[in-house]
């Protein structure tokens, strides 16, 4: 059987879910018998090719996040939202009731000492979105693994179920929102 191709990325997240993914520890070797990695922070491949499974950490807070998410959706047969931020918007979405302009001026103009009193506007920087969104509000998402972050055991259970062709179920102790 040829290996399944897997891509992962972190959008408006903290890499905590990727760190938790590494918490599957030596089971990573078992996983690598079944899958190979395409674009992921582990391989440092910059763009995602055709894949079987795409795993997205983090919500959508800027234009680049949207482009990357669309690249994943266009290339991955199965797309998984992993972690509170991808599933609900998470902590970055706590700015949603505030005006974006107010947030930027509070951080860069009002607070002393950050950036010479200028709001960064380098063209290289992706434009922030007005609101932070969970990824299912932008593309169709096939599966969700909640948790901040989900534990390594939850990620392992989910992926092994999926790869074995079972409907992934977490059950008590593995399904967590915190």
């Amino acid at each position: 059987m040829s290996k399944l191709r897997v891509a992962t990325t972190s959008l408006a997240g903290c890499f905590g879910c990727h760190t938790s993914f590494l918490d599957i520890d030596e089971r990573l070797f078992d996983l690598l018998k079944l899958v190979e990695f395409d674009r992921t922070p582990l391989t440092d491949i910059k763009h995602c090719g055709p894949c079987d499974i795409g795993i997205v950490e983090g919500g959508i807070c800027n234009a680049e996040n949207v482009a990357v998410l669309r690249e994943f959706r266009n290339n991955c047969k199965v797309l998984i939202a992993i972690g509170s931020c991808a599933v609900t918007g998470g902590l970055p979405a706590q700015r949603n009731h505030l005006d974006l302009g107010d947030c930027l001026s509070e951080v860069y103009l009002t607070e002393p000492g950050t950036s010479h009193g200028l709001i960064p506007n380098d063209p290289e920087l992706p434009l922030p979105l007005d609101k932070v969104h969970p990824i299912h509000e932008v593309v169709k998402v096939d599966y969700f693994i909640p948790g901040c972050p989900p534990s390594g055991d939850a990620i392992w259970k989910f992926l092994t179920d999926l790869i074995a062709g079972r409907t992934p179920t977490l059950g008590h102790g593995l399904i967590k929102y915190d």
Binding site: S84, G90, Q94, V141, Y143, F144, C148, Y177, D178
Partner: peptide, 27 residues
């Protein structure tokens, strides 16, 4: 606005516990 990771009630919350038990993976 239910941000469980920052909520003091997390783990003792009935809404969250129902979500767990019913297998709610996303809103």
């Amino acid at each position: 606005n239910h941000f469980c990771p920052t909520c003091e009630k997390s783990g003792n919350c009935v809404l969250q516990a129902l979500g767990y038990d019913l297998g709610v993976m996303t809103a």
